[in-house]
Design a protein around this nucleic acid. Structure first.
Length: 836
DNA sequence: CCGTCCCGCCATGCT
DNA sequence: AGCATGGCGGGACGG
């Protein structure tokens, strides 16, 4: 046939003519034929090409597999049974199913339909094997051969899936035949990056151009439209975009590096970019194909190339659909109904470069590609500083991040395992909190105060509760972005007083908080302040959550969403506006239904689900920020609010069970009646070790939680580059002391590594993890992976690692990678869960 | 008929 | 040479 250029090169061998006759023998028939005779399952088939292992060809068995693979609920149930268990109903390697020997009839009858062999379904099966949020303890390695064998497909098919997953950094290649599964740990970051790159690549404009051209084409107005499109494509010369990598997830194996710009991966990324930058989050297949082709060569939009592109896009789309990141829809235009895809994945907050730490950006750009042009274009240094945070906090975060990076980049194992991928687990709730659209604030904080004296500002502004509460102003409220990753923090709105029996009232504090920490973090606190008492709290609903039917829950969620008041939730109000021409949309499902934005998908627990967290503009973010910095997985919970939320706690646990709801955990008698109850965010569910630190009262009100470090751009400008080496440590100490977390004499080293102050007994997490990383290739341990859900409940009442552990108040702070989304960000779309 | 996309050939680039 | 990847498009399937 035609030997068209492939990736700019000429393809010499037309093999079409030779192949055609072979067709009939293809597919499962061949498989069956091969399998007929001995049926000896090959122990380690070098390749899948020829003899395939057994597969349940019985209709029912096959159906079971397919159904279970297709149904998210079953999937999650499987997962909750454990990772390996998920496979139990599927094909086991090396063990032929009993129905191996079937007559030809039965085989024919049971021949799976084309649909059953679809890439999407296969992808579901593939995904079912791995948790969304793998922990380091698990075996996260993917052996292509094995997978192909177990799923009974050619390896080629697995490649397709893996390639798309790679594009999202959900897997990365370790070595030949070997991949590592990251799950969704990196997803938010990846999407963020992709969106950014998409924006910078002017995809939005390109889409418009294509559409415009189409339109003009229709009226034979050709010519100028073409030129415009061409211009728009030429405008960024580098249009040959490279694979977008994340720091820490670079291609490790050299063999892959040479192909890192190859099509499916890159195409997939581009496709996602398109989706993310397109206004209604919908891109038609055609437009996507054209853009993906046309990027470098608009002219020869030859037909077959287009077709090929479409085919590939289908491949990609199938995988993305399985990931529930997109959903097929149809757009109706003048010319009729056209297939399109709609982004249904997590919302990707607008790119606000200001909040992303500089190191992060440079790191990314360095690792993107060797072509600096590419990186330059992908990650321009110009910074839109729509969001900002207090300079000192920026420094703090930077140093923490740096440190984290250092720790993480320690040599690991012979295999080039890049452990950095786990970093993004620790997302930047902090930064999310810290950033508030500037114009939302009625009175921007004094820059000098903020810049020079963090602790001072804490002191100065430490208002008693009621006063602080009065300062709350609904108009200055900002919406907390829905956390995308595992550890969204929770902070509940204020109430006036504590009536909790477990909280020791403190004179200087107007409100009592329950602080929830990871056991490891709790240790840190106790070690410094033995007077703290940890009180295991009853975790009333440990099992309840598990039993919640995902469906029901999804309903709950959507209902809840529908009921949310417009005033309290700008995002949803906006969502309702969006109304693209779509046929498969149900107008009733306006609100966020999907688990993405919420934390249902997080198998990790440690989660407070918050849909919207409103803040008011006052001062105290610094304290909160610090809290979150050093207790990234901890929560401040105003006790008086707990019951208010408790009845709403619900969490579909799609993952492996063990989630524990916070509901009813904290008992108190206050009628609450916080100053701004309507603004109360919804505590959906929590899975945390229920340590209750008594005697800990932080002079911190929820109203003070958020908005402080919002500075004007000019305020920020001076802070980004300057560095204050030890500010983090002293700040921390001051704050912790001030707040009563540590006694006055104690100094806490912010970061042993950064400051080159070796601490005798290093935090266990660091120590162990580095050891593990070197010793155990199979289970690279990361700094502080959230505990397994299963073990969470066990951990509730004891602290792992013993009482002598020296606290570490560093290194694991939430990063700065996630960008905040304030009220200014209004979702222009709705998310849906329609199963098509 | 047409939208999808399975399937597997075979190019490519290691090892 | 052998193997791992994955580009690619024919043509089958399903509606």
């Amino acid at each position: 046939r035609d030997s068209r250029s492939r990736n700019g090169r000429c393809r010499p061998a037309p093999r079409g003519s030779l192949r055609t006759p072979l067709k009939q023998a293809g597919g499962s028939q061949r498989v069956l034929a091969d399998r007929q005779p001995g049926c000896q399952p090959l122990a380690t088939p070098p390749k899948l090409g020829g003899a395939l292992p057994a597969e349940p060809w019985t209709p029912t068995a096959n159906l079971k597999v397919l159904i279970s693979a297709a149904s998210p609920e079953i999937r999650s149930r499987e997962r909750s049974r454990g990772l390996q268990g998920a496979r139990s109903c599927q094909v086991r390697p090396g063990r032929p199913p009993p129905y191996e020997h079937l007559s030809g009839d039965e085989h024919e009858k049971s021949q799976p339909s084309r649909k059953e062999k679809s890439l999407g379904l296969l992808c579901l099966k593939f995904l079912a094997r791995y948790p969304d949020y793998p922990s380091a303890a698990e075996n996260n390695y993917i052996c292509l051969d094995e997978v192909a064998e177990e799923l009974n497909v050619e390896r080629r098919r697995i490649y397709s899936i893996v390639n798309v997953l790679e594009s999202l950094h959900m897997v990365s290649r370790l070595a030949k035949n070997r991949y590592i599964w990251h799950g969704q740990h990196n997803l938010a970051k990846t999407l963020q990056t992709l969106k950014k790159v998409g924006e910078e690549n002017k995809y939005t404009e390109k889409i418009q151009m294509i559409k415009k051209r189409e339109y003009e084409h229709e009226f034979d107005l050709d010519g100028k439209g073409n030129e415009e499109v061409a211009r728009s494509f030429v405008s960024n010369e580098h249009s040959e975009m490279c694979f977008v990598e994340l720091p820490g997830i670079e291609f490790c194996a050299a063999s892959v590096n040479s192909r890192k710009d190859k099509s499916l991966r890159v195409m997939s990324q581009k496709f996602v970019m398109l989706l993310l930058v397109s206004a209604p989050y919908i891109v038609s297949l055609e437009v996507a194909a054209k853009i993906l082709i046309g990027e470098n060569q608009l002219e020869d939009l030859d037909k077959s190339k287009f077709k090929t592109k479409i085919r590939r896009l289908y491949d990609i789309a199938n995988v993305l659909s399985s990931l529930e990141l997109i959903k097929k829809v149809h757009v109706t235009e003048e010319r009729g109904r056209k297939p399109a895809f709609k982004w249904t994945g997590p919302e990707v907050p607008p790119n606000t470069h200001g909040i992303t730490s500089a190191p992060s950006i440079s790191h990314i750009s360095e690792s993107i590609t060797s072509k600096e042009q590419c990186s330059k274009n992908l990650f321009p240094s110009r910074v839109k500083q729509n969001f900002t945070r207090h300079p000192s906090l920026t420094k703090l975060v930077k140093s923490i991040e740096n440190d984290r990076r250092k720790i993480q980049s320690a040599p690991t194992s012979p295999v080039k395992i890049n452990t950095n991928e786990h970093l993004s687990v620790y997302t930047s709730e902090m930064s999310q909190l810290a950033a508030i659209p500037q114009y939302q604030l009625e009175e921007p904080p004094k820059s000098e105060d903020m810049k020079n004296n963090l602790s001072g500002s804490v002191l100065e502004h430490s208002l008693p509760w009621p006063e602080a509460a009065l300062k709350a102003n609904i108009h200055t409220a900002a919406t907390l972005p829905k956390p995308l990753l595992t550890q969204p923090l929770g902070a509940l709105p204020p109430s006036r007083q504590s009536a909790s029996t477990v909280i020791k009232p403190q004179p200087h504090s107007g409100a009592s908080y329950a602080i929830y920490l990871h056991p490891s973090e709790a240790q840190a606190v106790t070690a410094y302040n033995p007077s703290f008492m940890f009180q295991p709290l009853p975790c009333a609903n440990v099992t309840g959550i598990k039993s919640i039917n995902p469906k029901a829950l999804s309903e709950m969620t959507s209902k809840e969403g529908d009921n949310c008041t417009a005033a309290a939730d700008p995002g949803k109000t906006m969502a309702a506006k969006e109304r693209p021409v779509m046929e498969s949309e149900s107008s009733s499902n306006r609100c966020l239904k999907r688990s993405w934005a919420l934390q249902e998908k997080s198998g990790k627990g440690n989660v407070i689900l918050k849909k919207n967290l409103f803040f008011s503009y006052t001062f105290g973010l610094n304290v909160y920020f610090l809290f979150q910095t050093f207790f990234p997985s901890g929560y401040l919970i105003p006790l008086t609010q707990c019951t208010y939320h408790s009845n709403k706690a619900a969490l579909p646990n799609r993952e492996r069970g063990g989630l524990c709801s916070l509901q009813h955990t904290v008992t108190h008698s206050s009628p609450a009646a916080g100053a701004i109850p309507e603004m109360t965010s919804e505590l959906k569910a929590v899975n945390i070790p229920a340590f209750h630190i008594t005697s800990l009262n932080i002079m911190l009100s929820p109203t003070s939680i958020a908005a402080a470090p919002v500075l004007s751009n000019s305020h920020l400008s001076s802070s980004n580059t300057s560095s204050v080496p030890n500010s983090s440590s002293s700040l921390l100490n001051f704050t912790l002391q001030h707040v009563g977390l540590i006694p006055a004499g104690v100094q806490v080293s912010t970061n042993p590594v950064l400051q080159h102050i070796p601490i005798p007994s290093k935090p266990e997490s660091v120590n162990h993890s580095s050891e593990n990383m070197t010793l155990q290739e199979e289970k690279p341990t990361v700094l502080k992976e959230p505990p397994e859900p299963q073990t969470m409940t066990e951990n509730l009442f004891h602290t792992p690692g013993g009482p002598n552990t020296v606290p570490l108040l560093s290194a694991n702070a939430g990063g700065t990678d996630t960008i905040s989304q304030g009220t200014s960000y209004i979702p222009q779309r709705k998310l849906e869960v329609s199963e098509n």
